[in-house]
Amino acid sequence: MPHTLSSSRPEPICGMDTWMPVPARILAIEQENFNTWTFTTRFVAEEIRKIYRFAPGQFNMLYVPGVGEAAFSLSSDPAEPETLAHTVRRVGSVTRALERFKPGGLIGLRGPFGHGWPMELMRDRHVVIVAGGIGIAPLRPVLYTLLHNPDYCKRLVLLYGCRTPADRVYASELEDWENNDAIEVLVTVDNADSEWNGPVGVVTNLLRRIKVDAKNTIVLVCGPKVLNRVAAWSFLQLHVPPDQVFVSLERNMNCGFARCGHCQLGGKFVCSDGPVFRFSDIADIFAKEDI
């Protein structure tokens, strides 16, 4: 089995101190939509590049010197761990500071942290990926990996929902994938424009368009809180077992390694027990607010 198909948890690469980010250079910045950019980066030190590995679904703490850190999923191909991509939506001070960077800029990374998607469970199964908006970012490494190994799973479906056609991230790749026989891609938008020919409505509506072999399906969900809930429940209603539904969650993160306490969700540290959780492990707190 290729390395990237195991769910083992690669060790974090650290600087000279727990909280010292490791310098990395921005190689390229690609604008995905009006408020989202993909930053491709590379560690400055060659010895770090040689040992850094990540599993799909893991994240880095991305550091803008003097501004601060924020958690971002790795969204590039885990088979090419020398260049790391993070897709970033403008929401806070770190992301706004990132916007000012140009290729060549020096940032910092700590990671990879957390547990990712259950790659080993996907062997010979049907894999249905449900993503909303920028939630497709932590799933892109899964897509790359499964498309490199088209015989690994029996069937690969991507259901992707956005507010408008202009909100799609990875738009050109989505088009490539739509023409790829190894994957079925369905994209829906909440609000269409005149150019849009595809489905309109919430992403779970797309479930009607595919036939799910419930017992044999692994579901991967990542999106806003509401989408996570609705999508997970929709699959449970279709009798997909709760231990075959996986959700990636978001929480305030400061350290990345279960030390600072910020990301707790009930008894879970989202940064290290997650960010990808098996639904059955968090069923009791999944839909609770204020927890």
Binding site: V91, G92, R251, N252, H262, Q264, G267, E289, D290, I291
Partner: peptide, 23 residues
């Protein structure tokens, strides 16, 4: 402590006390 783009995840005192005591 739990601030995420739109506000604190535990927005009420009830939620925060519950988190603390349960923790």
């Amino acid at each position: 402590f739990s601030y995420l783009t739109s506000g604190p995840e535990r927005a009420t005192i009830r939620g925060r006390y519950r988190h603390w005591l349960r923790h």
